[in-house]
């Protein structure tokens, strides 16, 4: 046994994990920013039409109604365009009560300024939209926003 014992060779030095938190936080932030929360699963095809005279939507006072053909996963609902509200298909007659219920869920000061966001697939018949509008008039929810993708040709 020599006096000057050699240091252990072999074993690899530990890799520093000091930056691991940074990486984790980076991922966390990225997903926080990039994730769009969806309140309801779409059961229909929803390709929005495009328009260039668009205004911004105020999300706090909006109730969404979706319209379009049932997507491939929900083929059992047929091929005719359907209306979706929250998580379920509704008939035209149910639009009025659903919207009323939606309005009741809003805070009181926003109830009178409610906007109905219509997210309708661009290949749907306009007849479905006018049916919905007729029901909205009955529910006295008169402000409607036709949600569209913005065309950027004039920017």
């Amino acid at each position: 046994m020599s006096k000057f014992r050699k240091k252990d060779k072999g074993g690899l030095p530990a890799i520093s994990t000091a930056s691991l938190p940074d990486i984790v936080f980076m991922l966390l932030f990225f997903f926080m920013v990039a994730t769009v929360m969806r309140d309801s699963t779409l059961m229909i095809e929803n390709q929005l039409p495009s328009a260039d005279q668009v205004e911004k939507l105020q999300k706090d006072r909006t109730i969404f109604i979706y319209g379009g053909k049932p997507s491939d996963m929900y083929k059992q609902f047929g091929k005719e365009p359907r209306i979706q509200f929250n998580d379920a298909f509704i008939t035209v007659e149910e639009v009025q009560s659903s919207v009323m219920q939606g309005i009741n869920d809003l805070t009181e000061e926003l109830q009178s300024r409610v906007v109905i966001g219509l997210k309708v697939d661009k290949n749907t018949n306009a007849g479905l939209v006018s049916d919905i509008k007729q029901e909205l008039r009955k529910a006295n929810a008169l402000k409607v926003m036709y949600i569209a993708n913005s065309k950027n040709d004039d920017l």
Binding site: A51, L118, Y146, A148
Partner: peptide
């Protein structure tokens, strides 16, 4: 980089008023 390049999707559309019944 991701903060700058990611846009949060915001809905836009045509706002119209329906006539009352």
């Amino acid at each position: 980089f991701f903060l700058v390049t990611t846009t949060i999707e915001k809905d836009k559309g045509l706002l119209r008023s329906l006539p009352p019944i």
